[in-house]
């Protein structure tokens, strides 16, 4: 089989439920995507869309109970991660698959120096000696362009600025040269000028390692600048997936179109915004049929009863889950 036959990371029909005393909440409902080597795939969604839960399921970080993966497959170069033992999954995590969290201040251990935490990666996973591991930690900090790494390796997380702390997180994620890095809102807590630095760093590192990057975000601007392909999630489901250019130029789902019309943009001074009415549903009360239908300007009665299939719109692989996908796809973008 050619290496291309297996995407780097393949998620198929993933369903995640939270079973609580107050009922079952379906947070992710049939998510599928494929991430290839050297590619950046964005999972775009608002709060409650299930994008972070989906990432945690792939990482094997969800606690059961209350979370249950009820259906689907997660394959890393063909290896089924969901079928692995917890110990097997732990081995994969860090070495082949790693994650960058949003808030580095809470994700890093406040009582260990940054060097100790980075060195720990080598000591635990590769059995490297203390001194050698520390030297590699310094090299790693250099690699993510932290100035004066040899001195700062002894500093604690609180002594770093937000941007530098996020670089430490990135260093930790890249320590063992993983094939796939999942970045969950990596720049949301940062200022724009620092955000630009971090996104540029991720791109440079990706160029060096050919890692697949799964970028989880709600920010249409960040996605446009970083992603090769985009999967849009709404209420736990995939509503659209396409190349970045295609998605912004010819959205095939009314939700995506609505998002694009509702963001204020620096390149369109004073242009009026067309908001989406209503608010995203709570995961505990997702509407029947198409989950977006109560907010959709195009909705017809059947949208409230019949869930639209996820259909292919173009040979380039543009897909959308809307009964009127073709019509939306071909309408001019305002």
């Amino acid at each position: 089989m050619s290496p291309d036959a297996h995407p780097l990371l393949e998620v198929e029909d993933l369903c995640v439920e939270f079973r609580t005393r107050r009922g079952t909440i379906r947070a992710v409902n049939g998510l599928s995507y494929a991430l290839h080597e050297g590619e950046t795939l964005a999972l775009l969604g608002e709060s409650g869309s299930g994008k972070s839960v989906a990432a945690q399921a792939v990482m094997g970080l969800l606690d059961t109970p209350p979370a249950h993966i009820t259906r689907g497959a997660v394959r890393l170069r063909g290896d089924d991660l969901l079928a692995m033992s917890p110990e097997g999954h732990r081995q994969v995590r860090g070495t082949r698959l790693s994650m960058i969290f949003q808030d580095a201040l809470t994700a890093l251990n406040p009582v260990l120096s940054v060097g100790d935490q980075l060195a720990e990666m080598y000591r635990v996973h590769q059995g490297t000696g203390r001194k050698a591991a520390f030297a590699r930690a310094v090299a790693l900090m250099d690699r993510v362009r932290i100035p004066a790494a040899a001195r700062r390796v002894h500093d604690y997380p609180h002594q770093f600025s937000g941007g530098m702390r996020q670089r430490v997180m990135i260093a930790m994620a890249l320590a063992l040269d993983p094939e796939v890095v999942i970045a969950d809102e990596p720049t949301t807590a940062l200022d724009v000028t620092v955000q630009a630095q971090i996104m540029r760093l991720l791109k440079q590192l990706q160029g060096e390692t050919r890692m697949g990057l799964l970028l989880i975000t709600h920010d249409l601007g960040v996605v446009a600048e970083a992603a090769d392909r985009i999967t849009v999630m709404y209420a736990g489901r995939t509503v659209e997936s396409a190349s970045a250019e295609d998605l912004y130029a010819r959205p095939g789902h009314p939700y995506t179109r609505g998002l694009l019309d509702s963001v204020p943009r620096l390149d369109r001074l004073g242009k009026s915004l067309v908001p989406i009415t209503g608010a995203p549903p709570l995961p505990s009360s997702v509407p029947a049929g198409c989950a977006f239908h109560p907010r959709c300007p195009r909705a017809e009665p059947r949208c409230g009863s019949e869930a639209p299939p996820f259909r292919t719109l173009s040979p380039a692989g543009h897909r959308s889950a809307c009964h009127f996908a073709e019509e939306v796809h071909h309408a001019p973008v305002g």
Binding site: V192, T193, Q195, A196, Q197, M199, R200, D219, L220, G221, V222, V223, A224, E225, A227, A244, E245, Y248, A249, L260, V263, R265, L266, D267
Partner: peptide, 19 residues
Amino acid sequence: AAAPVPDPGRRAPDDAHLL
């Protein structure tokens, strides 16, 4: 220059002006 614009066609981050 640092503010991302939601248009993949404009993706040439103004590196010269990044801080």
